[in-house]
Simulated assay, not measured.
Amino acid sequence: MEIKALQAKATQIRMDLLQMIATAKTGHTGGSLSNTDILTALYYRIMNIDPKNPKAEDRDRFILSKGHSVESLWSVLADRGFFPREDLATFSQFGTKLIGHPNNKVPGIEMNTGALGHGLAVGVGMALAAKRDGASYRTFCLMGDGEQAEGSVWEAAMAGSHYKLDNLIAIIDRNRLQISGSTEEVMGLDPLEDKWAAFGWHVVSIDGNDMKDLVDTFATVPAVAGKPTLVMANTVKGKGVSFAENVPHWHHHVPNELELGKALAELTAALELYEQKGEVR
């Protein structure tokens, strides 16, 4: 997909996840909206994956360590064909596999996540296994910024550098908001890039809602031989819905009927704009 088509796809994914959350009457809205562009770049342009063979040995691995923001991932996996789109309507319903965190009974999910701070450690293990097996696959791990307060993240960061895992790419959805407010008020993180660099990682800071920035950056990894890469994706929580952007309340707010209608109208207008320009293909 070209950049404009990826932007249009991300808009469609946002519409799907909002409808899914509204139908289920539960979900984590703000973080799913902020990480949608990251997932779209990875799943439609960057990663080596095959929905028809989700367990292919040479597939790139993806771990959503911030597992509570799974709604965007479910929407992407359904759209890519890992499972039927109709299943999105069962999100968080009794007996569904599409629960509120990644569930590895669903094709395309590598591990159950949700306890923050665990994803990168498992990613280190996957990347180390690839090195020792002489395998070519890469491991991508998406974390939240509030998650950086977990000590296990830094143990994994130290191990990734020690083992020179240049096939490991960690991404931080740096939207600067968590459930109880600003990350810098809850547990100050800055200078976060400097901390990761001090742990021996190659650090790249980008606009995490800019599709070209995302694609150009991910296309270069592994970027430095012998070093894992940390992509600091500076994002806007609630991205794409004007009245949800940078509003802490939308961390797990479920849109009511009026809010859903306004949000879908905004996103539909954005999608129509892409199509009018003739840049969606």
Rank of each mutant, 00 (worst) to 15 (best):
Y137M: 00
Y137Q: 02
K97T: 04
R132N: 14
N112G: 12
M143Q: 05
F140E: 05
E150R: 12
G114A: 13
G114M: 13
R138C: 08
G144H: 01
G100R: 06
G119S: 12
E110C: 05
A121C: 10
K131P: 03
E150P: 05
M143S: 11
N104K: 15
T139N: 10
V124M: 03
S136C: 01
G134C: 03
M126Y: 14
C141H: 02
S152V: 09
A115M: 13
H101G: 09
Q148H: 12
H101A: 09
N112Y: 12
R132S: 10
P102Q: 06
T113E: 13
V122W: 04
N104T: 09
G119R: 08
R138M: 13
N103R: 01
L128T: 08
E110V: 13
A156T: 01
G125E: 08
M143K: 08
P107A: 11
L120A: 07
R132W: 12
Y137D: 03
A135T: 11
N103I: 10
G114P: 14
G95V: 06
S161R: 02
G144N: 08
F94W: 15
H118P: 09
N103M: 07
I99H: 07
V122E: 11
Y163W: 15
P107L: 10
M126C: 08
S136I: 03
K97N: 15
M111R: 15
Y163H: 15
E155I: 01
A157W: 00
D133R: 14
V153G: 05
V106S: 12
G125R: 09
S161H: 03
T139W: 06
A157V: 04
D145P: 00
F94Q: 14
R138G: 06
H101L: 06
A135N: 13
G100A: 14
D145I: 00
P102T: 09
M126G: 01
A149K: 09
A157H: 01
N104D: 15
S152P: 09
A159W: 07
G134P: 01
S136T: 12
T96E: 11
H101T: 10
E147M: 05
A157S: 07
I99Q: 14
V122Q: 10
Q148G: 01
P102E: 05
M126I: 05
L116I: 14
C141S: 10
G114R: 05
G144I: 05
G151E: 01
A159D: 09
E150F: 06
K131G: 03
L128K: 08
L142G: 06
K97C: 02
G95K: 14
N104S: 14
T96D: 06
G119Y: 07
K131L: 04
T139E: 08
G125L: 09
V122D: 02
G146W: 07
H118K: 13
E110S: 11
V122Y: 11
A159Y: 08
V106Q: 10
D145S: 01
